[in-house]
Measured scan of single mutants.
Amino acid sequence: RPFRVCDHKRTIRKGLTAATRQELLAKALETLLLNGVLTLVLEEDGTAVDSEDFFQLLEDDTCLMVLQSGQSWS
């Protein structure tokens, strides 16, 4: 499924495809050149996407933000 993913400053944006939350996090880690533990949130309001069940309910092309440890949505 297609998703739009950005870093916490919204300066890097990438289109990625993934079937699972874990797959998307792995691709974001590599594509956005990030490291460490990542958190996935909705870009629009910062809602945490912390379960596979919730991830599977997201629509195609949902905009997501990837946060590294110590970063927060704004």
Rank of each mutant, 00 (worst) to 15 (best):
L24T: 00
T17S: 12
Q22A: 10
V5Y: 03
L33W: 14
T47I: 06
G36Q: 05
T20C: 07
T62K: 05
E44N: 09
L29E: 15
V49F: 00
G70I: 13
D50K: 07
S69A: 15
S74H: 10
L42M: 14
R13E: 10
D60T: 14
D7L: 04
H8M: 10
D60P: 10
P2L: 15
E59A: 11
T31H: 12
L40Q: 03
T62Q: 07
E30N: 13
I12F: 12
G70K: 07
L58H: 00
A18P: 00
D60A: 14
R4E: 05
V37E: 15
D45N: 12
L29F: 14
V37G: 12
C63A: 09
L16S: 03
F3S: 05
D61T: 04
G46Y: 03
T47V: 07
P2H: 15
V49G: 03
R21A: 06
L25I: 13
C6T: 13
L57I: 09
F55T: 02
A26F: 11
L29P: 15
L24K: 02
V5C: 04
L34G: 10
L40I: 12
T39M: 11
A48Y: 10
V41T: 06
S72K: 13
L34N: 01
A18T: 03
D45M: 04
D61L: 01
L42I: 12
A19H: 11
R13N: 12
T39Y: 08
L67S: 01
A26P: 03
G36Y: 01
F55S: 02
R13L: 13
E59C: 06
G36R: 13
F54I: 12
L58K: 02
L38M: 10
L38S: 10
E23S: 05
Q56R: 13
G46P: 02
E23H: 04
E23M: 06
E59W: 04
K27R: 11
L57N: 13
D7N: 10
E43T: 00
D53R: 09
T17L: 12
S74P: 05
A19K: 13
G46N: 01
T20D: 13
D61H: 11
K14L: 09
C63Y: 08
S72F: 10
A48E: 11
S72I: 14
C63K: 12
Q71F: 03
L58T: 04
A28Q: 02
L25E: 06
D61G: 10
T47N: 06
L25A: 04
E30P: 14
C6K: 03
R4S: 07
D50V: 06
V41W: 05
L67I: 05
R4F: 15
S51V: 04
K9S: 12
D53W: 06
F54E: 14
N35Q: 13
L29S: 15
T39D: 08
A48M: 13
L64I: 05
A26H: 12
A28H: 00
M65S: 02
L34Y: 09
R21M: 15
M65K: 01
E30T: 11
C63Q: 10
G46K: 02
A48L: 12
D60R: 11
G15N: 10
D45L: 05
K14F: 08
L38R: 02
S69Y: 11
A18R: 04
R4Q: 07
A19I: 11
T39N: 10
F54Y: 13
A18G: 05
S51M: 03
V37N: 15
L42F: 06
T39Q: 14
L16G: 00
C63E: 10
E44F: 05
V5F: 04
L25W: 04
T20V: 00
Q56G: 11
L67D: 02
L67P: 01
D60I: 07
A26N: 12
R13F: 15
S69N: 14
S51L: 01
A28W: 06
R10I: 03
L32G: 15
D60C: 05
R13W: 12
A48H: 07
N35L: 05
V66T: 03
P2S: 11
Q56V: 07
Q71N: 05
L16D: 12
R1L: 01
L24N: 00
K27T: 09
R4T: 09
A28M: 07
R13A: 14
T11S: 15
R10A: 04
E43G: 01
L58A: 01
E59H: 07
A48C: 12
L38Y: 08
D45Q: 05
S69P: 15
E52M: 00
R10C: 04
N35Y: 07
T62A: 15
V37F: 09
M65L: 01
F3L: 09
V49I: 13
